[in-house]
Amino acid sequence: MAKSGIKKRSVGDIISDWLIGIFLGLLVFTTIYPFWHILMYSISDSRASMTGGFFLLPRKPTLLAYQMLFKTKQIFIAYRNTTMKTFFGTLLSVFLSALTAYPLSLKRFRGRNFISMGIFFTMLFNGGIIPTYILLKDLRMLDTFWVYIIPGAMSAYNMFILRNYFQSIPSSLEESALLDGANAFQILFRIILPLSMPALAAIAMFYGIGNWNSYMDGVLYVNEQRLQLLQVYLRQLIGAAGAKGALGDAGDLGPASRLTEETMKMTVIAVSIIPVLIVYPFLQKYYTKGVMVGSIKG
């Protein structure tokens, strides 16, 4: 809305700016605080943290929890697996969703309603864990990397969002390309997808976060530690913080026993969110900037 900003702003505009600003400011405060709390808690001394309350600043700052986290080789293996799952899984998912969404966005595509309904149906009904597990076993996917990217390769939700976006692209663009003799693949890859960067970025974000946070895949489908996922590793680490389960270690057993499960939990959350926050702006760029549809038309 940069254009309206150039014009002289009325009093009403200024007031509404302030109202929006105050509302968003308050909201942002409440949404940032939990993450800030987690971050500060994770670098505070466990015993100092025990009294609870708010964490505006770390208490007796220490990186002990992070040192313990990165002590073992396994976390790097887990990071590698999850990164690979996120990267390849997201690529495959976005690709597959685009291939599926494009034909479904075309009115002239026969069977469009039938296939759409068929896919929509899977959003409502599913067979459950056990039949899926047996299927993956029969496909010999268990304990392989494939099980991380193939079974969840497409989400109906994301596919429909993409289809919806494709539908909003003026069909005149496509028609002129058809007249030029372009085939469906060429139209999809040369015209539709470049115009759909906001939607592609949004669904890549959803797939990416889904992959990054995936946990049950790692527990159910894989037995071997060389394929362990980050979230599985992290979840098990929380309990291991200086504790036999919830009861703690006997005596003073080195630095780890000075960590509480709570500190470890906060550290683990921080460690799994920070990479997302680093990658996020690269995707955000696409879905906020917008595409000048008008100028392409011209």
Binding site: T72, Q74, V219, N223, R226, R235, Q236, I238, G239, A240
Partner: peptide
């Protein structure tokens, strides 16, 4: 349980040696 022992840890190796087994441990949360 809630721990993260490495797959080839020395305790399991030692247990395997003492019992003449190769232990394939699956350890889940």
């Amino acid at each position: 349980g809630d721990n993260t022992p490495s797959e080839d840890n020395i305790v399991l190796q030692e247990l395997g040696r003492r019992t003449n087994t190769i232990i394939k441990m699956t350890y889940v949360p």
